[in-house]
């Protein structure tokens, strides 16, 4: 269980997140969504202990926490296998064992042919798969993800989302992830937390009953449309009601 209790954080005089409380239960996927400046990434950094919150407490009872960044952040001088095995090496797993684990994961992630390649020889989608493999290798039970697919094109993003859903079901991982894409949040998340911007507050919580495998395109479109008609979400994302289109007055 990951528990955020009354978390506040500020940089200088700017309050970034205000009075944030929520839980991630084992096996649950929680999506943090909201416009830019709503402190989504700050919350994720707090969960990863990269930032100590100015106020409030975070309790992480998960055994092992892994992180997937927006960029792959692979070591350029290590091959696919060695990058996947990085966390295992840090945990002093013997070379043969960690190579075996990394090999199996690489196969699972469709990286078998690229096992000896260096990151610069891989495409963006493949690099992000290596990052996913690195997170899964340490046998984490909580995965923190910061818009991990936002740099990919639509097709590749869909493919990785599907792959991730299969892996989540298989490993029974809990996930806390950040996305500004409501469709992605609905597709992956069991619970959606919508944040307002500056300061970030949870303005809307939505627990969806539909299981991941049943969330087809139609369901997702309907769910996103429903969310975008909720007053709290409208004000958070700054969507104008007239035409249902985001409106930016000054450019």
């Amino acid at each position: 269980m990951l528990t955020f209790s009354n978390i506040c954080h500020w940089y200088g005089a700017t309050v970034v997140v205000d009075q944030i409380s929520f839980q991630v239960k084992p096996g649950q996927v929680v999506a943090l969504t909201g416009p830019s400046g709503s402190g989504k990434t700050t919350l994720l950094h707090i969960a990863a202990q990269l930032i100590t919150p100015a106020q409030g407490t975070v309790e992480n009872q998960f055994r092992q926490t892994a992180y997937i960044f927006q960029e792959p952040r692979l070591l350029p001088w290590r091959t696919t296998i060695d990058n996947i095995a990085l966390g295992l090496k840090a945990r002093r797993v013997s070379r043969t064992v960690r190579q075996q684990i990394a090999w199996n994961l690489a196969e699972r992630l469709g990286l078998g042919a690229a096992h000896a390649h260096y990151p610069h020889q891989l495409s963006g989608g493949m690099r992000q798969r290596v990052a996913l493999g690195r997170a899964l290798a340490i046998n984490a039970d909580l995965l923190l993800m910061d818009e991990p697919f936002s740099a990919l094109d639509v097709g590749r993003r869909r493919e990785l989302q599907d792959l991730l859903l299969r892996l989540l079901a298989e490993y029974g991982l809990a996930v806390l992830f950040v996305s500004h894409d409501l469709a992605e949040a609905v597709r992956l998340g069991d619970e959606l937390l919508v944040l307002s911007s500056a300061p970030g507050r949870i303005v809307y919580r939505w627990q969806q009953d539909c299981p991941p495998h049943a969330r087809d395109e139609q369901y997702i479109y309907a769910a996103v449309a429903a969310l975008l008609q909720t007053p709290a979400v409208i004000s958070s994302f700054g969507v104008h009601n007239d035409h249902g289109v985001a409106h930016s007055p000054k450019r």
């Binding site: 990863a48 926490t65 960044f69």
Partner: peptide, 25 residues
């Protein structure tokens, strides 16, 4: 520094920071 942040999140010990990140760079 983004690699160092990654190393922190993955609990990479200091010895490995030197051998796997600082030295190759």
């Amino acid at each position: 520094h983004t690699l160092l942040e990654m190393a922190y999140v993955f609990r990479i010990p200091r010895r490995m920071l030197i051998s796997d990140i600082y030295l190759p760079h």
